[in-house]
């Protein structure tokens, strides 16, 4: 936080998301959280600049969604007045284009969401970029705690709301977890004013992806409790019977201790008392 410290150059890779219910194009949730996090870095390095980078097709739907990120600008000077779109044909692998761009003008920090909301959504992109750039990668970022020189201390999300403190050396690639601070509201005005700078870029077709069959997700079959019992009756009951303890058990006229026992038993069964 020394006054002479340079601002941080942050590149936020943003994608076009899909709303989970309607599938409409929107700013992707994790990418937006990533941008929020990048904007919060100004608290550590006041002169930090955020670069918005997207590689993909250019069409109306995508543009509306991408403007969602521009709408997060508050005031001038944050770098959010412009989004660079590396134009890619349909079915292109965006990694080469992004890697080329990032290697040409390397930022100190690359922020992305954990995975895309459409297409393969494998979440591999940040890893491949980190590999190509030779930078360390930290996944599941929730919060940046401090930045000193070229070291950034951050919190990583673990399951069940737990957190781990990690220090990483910059330049680095970080992916943002869904538990990071939610993105601010995208405002119409700045979104409308912001410019999208379309640039030509390396276009490598994703041939493997083209060969795959895509279909809407099927519901996965629920695994039955496998009961290795000798008794046919027990096996039948396990397969066809209702789950134990269900069906609205009602305890009246019990002592508080009995009630507590019953509740604890259910909590144990459900495995939340760990």
């Amino acid at each position: 936080m020394q006054p002479e410290s340079r601002g941080l150059e942050v590149a936020v890779l943003v994608s076009v998301g899909r709303h989970p219910v309607t599938g409409r194009a929107r700013r992707a949730d994790q990418d937006a959280r990533g941008l929020e996090l990048a904007l919060s870095l100004a608290a550590f390095r006041p002169d930090s600049r955020v670069r918005l980078l997207h590689a993909g097709q250019r069409d109306d739907d995508n543009e509306t969604a991408l403007r969602g990120y521009l709408g997060m600008a508050r005031g001038v000077g944050t770098g959010l007045e412009r989004l660079t779109l590396l134009e890619q044909p349909e079915g292109a692998d965006v990694v080469p284009a992004l890697a080329e761009r990032l290697a040409a003008t390397p930022p100190q920090l690359v922020v992305t969401g954990a995975r895309a909301e459409q297409g393969e959504g494998s979440g591999l992109l940040p890893y491949v970029l980190a590999e190509r750039l030779g930078w360390p990668l930290v996944n599941g970022l929730v919060e940046v705690e401090s930045i000193e020189d070229d070291r950034m201390t951050l919190l990583q999300a673990l399951p069940r709301g737990q957190r781990r403190r990690i220090q990483v050396r910059l330049p680095a690639v970080v992916t943002v977890d869904g538990a990071a601070a939610p993105a601010r509201q995208s405002a119409f005005g700045p979104a409308r004013r912001g410019s999208i700078k379309v640039e030509a870029a390396l276009a490598v077709p994703d041939e493997a992806f083209a060969g795959w069959t895509l279909s809407p997700a099927r519901k996965r079959p629920r695994r039955l409790k496998i009961v290795k019992s000798a008794s046919a009756r027990d096996r039948f009951k396990a397969a066809a019977g209702k789950a134990q303890g269900g069906g609205g058990q009602l305890l009246t006229d019990v002592t508080p201790e009995q009630a507590a026992e019953a509740i604890l038993r259910l909590l144990e069964e459900e495995g939340v008392m760990r």
Partner: peptide, 12 residues
């Protein structure tokens, strides 16, 4: 495999 945040099934 699941893709697009559980909205797609990818056969490959």
């Amino acid at each position: 495999a699941r893709g697009a945040v559980d909205r797609l099934d990818i056969q490959r």
